[in-house]
Design a protein around this nucleic acid. Structure first.
Lengths: 152, 152
DNA sequence: ACTGAAAGTCTTCCCCG
DNA sequence: CGGGGAAGACTTTCAGT
């Protein structure tokens, strides 16, 4: 990770489909050298994947919610986490400090679907002692872009 | 939005750098027709952007937190939201139902930086009556991919 | 809205420094 | 690790349906 890699990352963060030749011009390297560097960043796991960001509302995914989950005992953790990975409506799962154990972000079509997800897909798992649902009324900012600042 | 567009979206969601010719084979169209369709999806706003997903920890962004914010009075809302858009460490901002008004997701390098963000960048804004910070200890799943199911 | 062909561009491979 | 050239692949444009 040097300053050239940082430049590459910043540019690719904003446009994952940028052509190597364009990227090359920006960073002042030849196209093959640029492609090499990006491949290396991917192999190292610094670049995880290239994603297309869609408008949830335009696809009928109008409802979002955060669900805080409390787990009863540690032996329930692994099966819980495994199941969470499989649930497509659970976009994020964070282990958090504080009153609750896990915080999930969910996106779905409507309240009935949300009800089904929470009741049948999450609460039915073993060892869940409590859930606390917070409805998202409007999303004003949403990005995965890291706050890479000029000094980086 | 027909079933062909849904196929395109599903494939691009997983690999934003997929070549038009490859995509074309998957959906059974010619390359020019495929490129046309993707451009149309972008113009319609269904495709928002192509993003490169990085590993936060590998770039020194080891700390994450959710910050719940309560706003005192409605006239403080617009300046607050405007400022939030400008803060690079605030990755997400959702207006939520319930006890608090807004829920922010933050990523930063360490606790000192988090302290600075909450104290100097957020709490210093006018009209903030209360904040409640929840530290992320481990992120087990994180994606922007919508749960587009086979039936879509 | 899509196809097919042609023209132009970009990527990839390889060898050299 | 990076440059440059050549071969091949890909994208883009355009005419035609």
């Amino acid at each position: 990770m040097n300053s050239l890699d940082m430049k590459i990352i910043k540019l690719l963060m904003q446009d994952a489909r940028m052509k190597w030749s364009t990227l090359a011009k920006h960073i002042g390297l030849s196209a093959p050298a640029t492609a090499d560097r990006v491949n290396r960043l991917q192999e190292q796991g610094i670049i995880r994947r290239f994603e297309t960001v869609l408008d949830p509302a335009r696809l009928g995914y109008d409802l979002g919610a955060f669900v805080a989950v409390s787990l009863e005992r540690p032996e329930h953790r692994d099966p819980f986490l495994q199941r969470i990975q499989e649930l497509p409506h659970v976009l994020e799962c964070h282990h958090v400090a504080g009153e609750d154990d896990y915080l999930l972000k969910i996106r779905c079509r409507n309240t009935e679907e949300l009800d089904d997800i929470i009741t049948n897909q999450i609460k039915s798992l073993h060892g869940i002692s409590r859930t606390k649902t917070t409805i998202i009324m409007r999303t004003l900012k949403e990005s995965t872009a890291l706050p890479l600042l000029p000094e980086d």
